[in-house]
Design a protein around this nucleic acid. Structure first.
Length: 151
DNA sequence: GCCAACGTTGGC
DNA sequence: GCCAACGTTGGC
């Protein structure tokens, strides 16, 4: 079992949107960064995910989700009408993948980025490293436990 | 809206 | 392989 953090802009897709989906599940499409993709390829069914709200008034961890389907090709890369269309991706060897994640719970309050930065127990946390821009990040087991305690 | 920090692209 | 230009991310 591994732990991850996935970012989403709540104006586009929030933890509430995830809870409202059919079967409370969504394909995490649109990732177009190789490192983030590689992390998604490492994800296993049952892995747990911190659902993070970025670029909004209340930046931070908003809920918990779970991986319910492991990596498979992202359909949006082959759709010319989709903003994530990638003309260079070969259908025989797709460049971009998605995983399916399912809603587990919404936190009563967002754990703010400020509070995460202030928590020394998190140590070297990928999210708070300077210059971090990855939309999919690994979380260690001790970090996961420390963050849940903050909820 | 600003800007720092990246990743990607393409000419050479 | 280098690197400048460009586009994007994301906090503030």
């Amino acid at each position: 079992m591994a732990y991850w953090l996935m970012k989403s802009e709540p104006d586009t897709f929030s933890i509430d949107d995830l809870a409202k989906r059919p079967r409370k599940t969504t394909a995490w499409d649109g990732v177009r960064n190789y490192q983030a993709r590689n992390y998604m390829r490492q994800m296993k069914r049952g892995d747990e995910v911190l659902f993070y709200h970025s670029s909004c008034d209340n930046v931070g961890v908003a809920g918990i989700a779970q991986v319910v389907r492991e990596a498979y090709p992202d359909a949006t890369q082959f759709d010319p009408d989709d903003s994530h269309f990638d003309p260079k991706s070969d259908p025989e060897d797709p460049r971009w993948d998605v995983v399916d994640i399912k809603f587990v719970k919404k936190l009563p309050e967002v754990i703010s980025l400020e509070a995460l930065k202030a928590n020394a127990k998190l140590g070297d946390f990928a999210l708070t490293r300077r210059g971090n821009r990855l939309s999919v990040l690994p979380v260690t087991a001790p970090q996961w436990r420390a963050i849940l305690k903050m909820a």
